[in-house]
């Protein structure tokens, strides 16, 4: 249940995210018989048991260390075996809010992919909501089903292997929100319409990387009676903090003087000047600054949202 309830202490069988660096994390299932080896050293699982989550653990030979983190959907996104393209936190967050998800919501997702977004959805709709997720790739469907079981999410998530564009969802009139991450979402929109709980408002999001897909999606949403069709792009940009020295023109002149002194020294072989020349050197004031990375995510996907209207009695 570690995705749905926080724990304080690490126990046998827990899922721990071993954090070595920002780019290097590994999921571990704690098994007191096992040892985890990496380039920073040897870590015995049995040493983790009883420790508080978040503990910084030194390796057995003292060469390195790692942090023992509690699993969260965000960390799982980092460590999920990359079976497909995953969604990023900016998109995930915006979609969840826009679809008005909260404990108790009933959601439909297709395709499941690596199940990374399913974890975020399950987190938000727990404990009394439900996620129906559909994946047409059989191996992937099996793999995520196993993940959900291991992570205690089976009661919240129903996975089915199904080609929804051809065969529909097999559910009608029960969901509050729909999320479609499919190559041709417009093929699934008529079936999605039927999956909505018919007497209440609902929200749909289609996730497509190409603008041509967005245009066909919007046309289909319009034809199927969806309203408030809106499209967004959402990205997250990092600002790295560092300190830089701020030199002045006087520093620049000093620097030249020092260089000249050195030259003269070499010429004259006179060491008495040494003390005089070094007095120019001063520590410059430092400034905290931020810098955006040279390369950042420029596009993930377009998010097309629309509203499902409750069906009127005479319709």
């Amino acid at each position: 249940m570690s995705f749905l309830r926080y724990k304080t202490l690490i126990e046998e069988g827990d899922l721990v995210i071993a954090y070595l660096s920002r780019e290097n994390m590994t999921p571990l299932i704690v098994d007191s018989q096992k040892t985890y080896n990496n380039k920073f050293g040897t870590f015995k699982h049995k040493d983790m048991i009883g420790k508080e989550y978040g503990t910084k653990m030194p390796s057995h030979n003292g060469r390195g260390f790692m942090y023992l983190l509690h699993s969260t959907p965000e960390l799982w996104t980092h460590v999920v075996p990359h079976r497909t393209q995953i969604l990023y936190v900016a998109d995930i967050s915006y979609i969840i809010t826009y679809l008005d998800l909260k404990p108790g919501s009933v959601v439909l997702e297709s395709g499941t992919g690596s199940g990374s977004f399913s974890h975020s959805l399950a987190r938000t709709i727990a404990p009394n909501g439900h996620l129906y997720t559909f994946e047409f790739h059989e191996e992937r469907a099996k793999a995520v089903k196993k993940d959900f079981e291991e992570h205690g999410l089976s009661d919240l998530i129903t996975v089915e292997c199904r080609d929804v564009c051809k065969d529909g969802f097999g559910i009608t009139g029960i969901v509050h929100a729909v999320f479609l991450d499919l190559p041709a979402p417009w093929e699934a929109i008529p079936a999605a319409k039927g999956a909505f709980k018919q007497n209440r408002i609902g929200k749909i999001c289609c996730f497509s990387p190409c603008i041509e897909q967005v245009q066909r999606t919007c046309a289909s949403l319009n034809e199927n009676g969806f309203v408030e069709i809106k499209m967004y792009e959402c990205l997250m940009r990092e600002h790295d903090v560092k300190t830089i020295p701020i030199y002045t023109v006087a520093d620049a002149i000093n620097k030249i003087k020092i260089q000249q002194d050195k030259k003269r020294k070499r010429k004259d072989q006179n060491e008495q000047d040494d003390a005089n020349s070094s007095k120019f050197k001063q520590d410059p004031p430092n400034l905290y600054v931020t810098k955006t990375p040279n390369e950042a995510k420029g596009h993930t996907s377009y998010l097309t949202f629309a509203t499902f209207l409750p069906v009127l009695d005479d319709e």
Partner: peptide, 29 residues
């Protein structure tokens, strides 16, 4: 936040402090 981030880095209790900014753009379709 820059000063707070420096504070976090100096302390040992914060793992991987980072500053992020969200960017949102709406399209007319």
């Amino acid at each position: 936040l820059i000063n707070a981030c420096v504070h976090m880095r100096i302390s040992k209790k914060f793992l991987n402090p980072q500053i992020t900014e969200s960017w949102l753009r709406q399209y007319q379709v």
